[in-house]
Design a protein around this nucleic acid. Structure first.
Length: 426
DNA sequence: CAGCAGGGGGCGC
DNA sequence: CGCCCCCTGCTGC
């Protein structure tokens, strides 16, 4: 049995960097990064025996594949493994049955929220054939999402548990600095999945309701060509751009083009069209080295320069050189001209950078937007929170506090398959 | 003196 | 925007 796998390489916040094929060697493998990965080699009869004594006792499950949150002793990383569970069609009547089997641990309270049925089918209406579903259970020990450095999705194709259809995708949540970082990963995950359509599933990460601080992980089968219900982010953006382009463009009486989104006006169609691109997230320019996409050729060129080490913008007063002109300007302000264009209206503070002024202003307003999830501490900037988090554990990156306390897992194959919300409270 | 937190500088992407 | 660093002040041992 071969498994396609994306390795999680470092303890720092990890972008998915590597794709490798790995032969399956045994029940438990110890990876280079110390992550312990469990594999299920039980026969159908063994699975049958287990399920009859487990949470799915009265169900009509064909098989239940164990889902493991496995701590690795050395690295203290944990894996939440999702695997397909095969049901017969009668199982559709068991929608009230919770598929979330969680063992309580002392000192840890687990709330399983199920806003809808515990199980939704891949396709509407009853089916006679076996269905492909995903269930989550957390066995052995339970850890909060903050402690999960690796989430691993392990999906098996319907009916067939053979090597070529064993797909595995590991996503690191180590140092996931909140939702934004996860959104960045989404793009990369999708692209990687597209590159390896035969083996992988999409794992999309996006923010849910901001007020509830949830992350939605969407697992979809990349083998499925149509994404009827869930167009990709890129597709959605393209559609959005297409539709808004026509709506937003209004030509005034004096032959000027007015942007309906902002105050921009232009007498030239080309300028107007260029401006309208700033209101879409369309990124047609692809870096072939890392698959990141960019809105403009210039942004792409600058990015490629970071790969090649090309730094065309050289400082005349020192030997520093930069990828972009903006970086050079900023450097010259810091080191040579000492110009500080961003001035605080409440004190004499002035800064080279707008973001620094923003950070400074928080010291006037008292705003502390970065809340520690383990105590009442709140910080004015993310780095301070990370530094603070190290005082809780004395280990790890310190970014755990940025991960929301509610983790929503959501999976999609041919149709939406909602899993539920696991809420972990300490 | 160590540990922690606040403010801020400099730079990479 | 985020990361890393430095300097400084406060607090407890």
């Amino acid at each position: 049995m071969a498994a396609t796998e994306i390795s999680v390489l470092s303890e720092q916040f990890t972008k998915i960097k590597e794709l490798e094929l790995m032969p399956e060697k045994g029940l438990k493998e110890e990876e280079k990064d110390g992550v312990c990965r469990e594999k299920d080699h039980r026969s159908p009869s063994e699975l049958e025996a287990e399920r009859t004594s487990g949470a799915f006792q009265d169900s009509v499950l064909e098989e239940e594949v164990e889902l493991v949150l496995a701590p690795s002793e050395e690295s203290e990383k944990y894996i939440l493994t999702l695997q397909t569970v095969h049901f017969t069609s009668e199982a559709v009547e068991l929608q009230d049955m919770s598929l979330l089997s969680i063992q309580q641990q002392e000192g840890v309270q687990v709330v399983v929220q199920q806003p809808g049925p515990g199980l939704l089918w891949l396709e509407e209406g009853p089916r006679q054939s076996l269905q492909q579903c995903v269930a989550i259970s957390i066995q052995q020990e339970l850890y909060s999402p903050q402690e999960m450095e690796v989430l691993q999705f392990h999906a098996l194709e319907e009916n067939v548990m053979v090597a070529s259809e064993d797909s595995k995708l590991a996503v690191s949540l180590a140092e996931t600095a909140g939702l934004i970082k996860l959104e960045e990963e989404q793009e990369k995950n999708q692209l990687l999945a597209e590159r390896t359509k035969e083996q992988l599933f999409f794992v999309e990460t996006m923010s849910g309701d901001e007020r509830s601080d949830e992350i939605v992980l969407t697992v979809s089968n990349s083998n499925v060509e149509e994404q009827e219900d869930q167009p990709t982010a890129g597709q959605a953006d393209a559609e959005k751009a297409k539709s808004t382009k026509n709506q937003r463009k209004t030509k005034g009486a004096k032959g000027t083009f007015h942007c309906d989104v902002c105050m921009f006006t232009s007498s030239r169609m080309s300028s107007f069209n260029r401006h309208m691109k700033t209101h879409t997230s369309e990124k047609p320019h692809l870096c072939h080295l890392c698959l990141k996409t960019f809105r403009t050729v210039t942004l792409l060129r600058n990015h490629v320069n970071t790969h090649t080490g090309t730094r065309p913008y050289k400082c005349n007063d020192c030997n520093m050189a930069f990828v972009t002109s903006g970086e050079l300007v900023r450097h010259r302000r810091y080191k040579h001209t000492h110009e500080k264009p961003f001035k605080c209206s409440m004190c004499k503070y002035a800064s080279v950078e707008a973001s620094k002024l923003k950070r400074h202003v928080r010291s006037h307003t008292g705003e502390r937007p970065f809340q520690c999830c383990q105590c009442s501490y709140a910080s004015r900037d993310t780095y301070k929170l990370k530094r603070h988090m190290r005082t809780h554990s004395g280990k790890g990156s310190g970014a755990e506090g940025l991960i929301p306390t509610v983790l929503t897992l959501k999976a999609s194959f041919k149709k939406l398959l909602f899993i539920g919300t696991i809420k972990v409270q300490r």
